[in-house]
Amino acid sequence: MIVLENVSKTFAVKQGKIDALKNVSLEVKKGEIFGVIGYSGAGKSTLIRCVNLLEKPTEGTVTVNGLKLTELSPGKLRESRRKIGMIFQGFNLLKTATVYDNIAIPLRLTGLSKKQVDERVSKYLNIVGLAEKQHSYPSELSGGQKQRVAIARALSHEPEVLLSDEATSALDPDTTEAILDLLLKINRELGITILLITHEMHVIQRICDKVAVMENGRVIEEGKTAQIFSAPQQETTRKFVNSLFSHKIPENVFDHLKETGHVFTLSFFGISSEQPALALVSKNFDIFPNILSGSITQLKEEPFGQLLVHLQGEDEEIKKAVDFLKKQGVHVEGVSEHDFTNQ
């Protein structure tokens, strides 16, 4: 559905140039919700704006639904963009227009009849749950309601792809949850492919099938959400995953624990989260497990959990216990004092 091949973007500035994207390749399949996460300056916003060519790549190709956008004429590009909806952090609503007109005006510009415009405005305001607000102005709406209007406006062109540029960043936690539920509904009921960028791991956790992690203009890690959560390979990815959990213990306590064993992070998801693996460790090996902290959260389709445990015992028995846990589908990673000082 969306294919980026070796996409680079360089901006010219007074000091020289900025390489915002460096040889990025991604593929988003039809019907997926694909998330791109990274800290400020990672290149996320430039990446998503290259998908509909609001920013033209310096190098590389962008293909959406079989069309190479980077090779289209300006007229053909404008036409193809109608099938690519986009929602923004700042809503971008016309302050002097009603909710109805914020959705209707762009539709009129495409040449639709009054009847078609009325039908689409009504349909998509119902989908986002704001049918009763069609005569209201943006100043009379909450932040969440404004974002729903922006989503209805994007959907009214009946796109095949929806791009989300930090759509929940300006919203409070409860409103964020409601907007994420709405995006899930749109994906499932309308079959629209969604590509979103965010700096919040919670957004990835809640709705994304796959995720790519960006740093310094490059994709440093990519895969299914469950895979990335259970076994992150890069330090930046680990920080994002750990942001959902709190595994801090006092330095003096950690020093004491090291004297009698080792501290590990145990990550598990899916069916392995339902198995009493840690209980079996104490039964099968000369080991005394001590759970220091832990939590279970729900990914889009399955549970994901993480425990910080101290395994007390001899090194040989601890090694056997760790091997056993891995065979049970638990991702085991040793913890050092450095890990606590950087969380």
Rank of each mutant, 00 (worst) to 15 (best):
I151V: 12
I151G: 06
A154H: 03
L155K: 03
L155H: 03
H157K: 10
P159D: 01
E160R: 07
E160G: 11
V161R: 08
L163A: 09
S164V: 06
D165G: 00
D165V: 10
D165N: 05
E166W: 04
T168W: 05
S169D: 06
L171A: 00
D172M: 02
D172R: 08
L183W: 05
L184D: 01
L184F: 02
L184A: 01
K185M: 03
K185V: 00
I186D: 02
E189D: 05
L190Q: 00
T193I: 06
I194L: 08
L195C: 08
L196G: 06
L196E: 14
I197D: 04
H199K: 01
H202S: 12
I204T: 14
I204Q: 11
Q205A: 09
R206C: 13
I207H: 05
C208F: 08
C208K: 13
C208M: 10
D209A: 05
V211E: 14
G217R: 04
G217P: 04
R218L: 11
V219D: 09
E221F: 11
K224R: 13
T225P: 04
A226K: 15
Q227V: 12
F229K: 15
S230V: 14
S230Q: 15
Q233K: 12
E235H: 15
E235I: 15
T236S: 13
T236C: 09
T237I: 15
R238P: 03
F240P: 02
V241N: 10
V241K: 06
S243M: 10
F245Q: 02
